[in-house]
Design a protein around this nucleic acid. Structure first.
Lengths: 136, 136
DNA sequence: TATAATCCCTCTAGTAGGTATAGCTACAAG
DNA sequence: CTTGTAGCTATACCTACTAGAGGGATTATA
């Protein structure tokens, strides 16, 4: 049995976040001691690790909820899990592509000579989109 | 003079968002018609375009606020503007690197054969971090 | 056993950056 | 003059937490 603090240490999920997950129904309310403190089992630890991992990979809490639901029914086909993962991968790729375009643009405009603000490429570019060389 | 809807169309910023920006003091309250409707000038349009552009480049509202402040004093050195942009560029690069690691991992685990959930690589990997091939 | 340090409890409110809704009024076209 | 679209305020809601107040529980040491 782990206290909430021990569980936090073992999973890397912060204590208030664990309580938050319980509040929104992502994890079940655990047993309590006579003094009303939460005590977690190995199963609770595993579920929270799963959640942590899913969040680390950038999935939303909603996606994570669906993964948890799916992993509770190991006899069904895993198409749904793949659908979620594939959808997320597409979003991720778009995000990367966009960020890389932004990177290029930002690099271009932020490496000018330091001078007076009236000639600052950063501010000029923000003021006039037509100065941009890439799409965004 | 533009109505709020026309301004929204011209800048690509949604109507409620424009009102929100006014509320948080990012743009000044514009003049009103006798019937209490907002009417924007060219200067209002330019300021909102500047904001939109800054947001498009991924800057926070706080960064954007600082850019606006700086662009109001064109006689000062633009070091500050560059500092903000450079800081943002570093954050952006970290974000891209992390997303690319996630992409690799997600690609690896989501391209398995569709079978039973008990053997689903997506769910298995989420449950057991040691199955991951990359850092995240 | 006493006490101090650390942990844990609930509850409320706040964060960014908006979006949605309700109930109402203004304005432009026919 | 009416009707449909656009605008108004105010409040609540969204994600995914984080911070703080004010108290109780547990544990390590004296």
């Amino acid at each position: 049995m782990y206290s909430i603090g021990q569980l936090a240490d073992k999973t890397g999920v912060k204590v208030p976040t664990i309580r938050y997950y319980e509040q929104i129904g992502l994890i079940a309310p655990p047993e309590r001691t006579a003094g009303n403190q939460r005590r977690y089992t190995l199963a609770g630890f595993q579920r929270l690790s799963f959640i942590r991992h899913s969040r680390d990979l950038g999935f939303s809490l909603q996606d994570t909820r669906e993964f948890l639901e799916l992993s509770g029914h190991p006899d069904q086909k895993c198409d749904d899990a793949h659908k979620i993962a594939t959808r997320h991968l597409a979003v991720l790729r778009q995000k990367i592509a966009k960020l890389m375009r932004l990177e290029a643009e930002l690099e271009r405009i932020s490496c000018c000579e330091s001078g007076k603000l009236g000639d600052c490429a950063v501010l000029e570019t923000l003021a006039d989109h037509s100065l941009c060389k890439t799409d965004h």
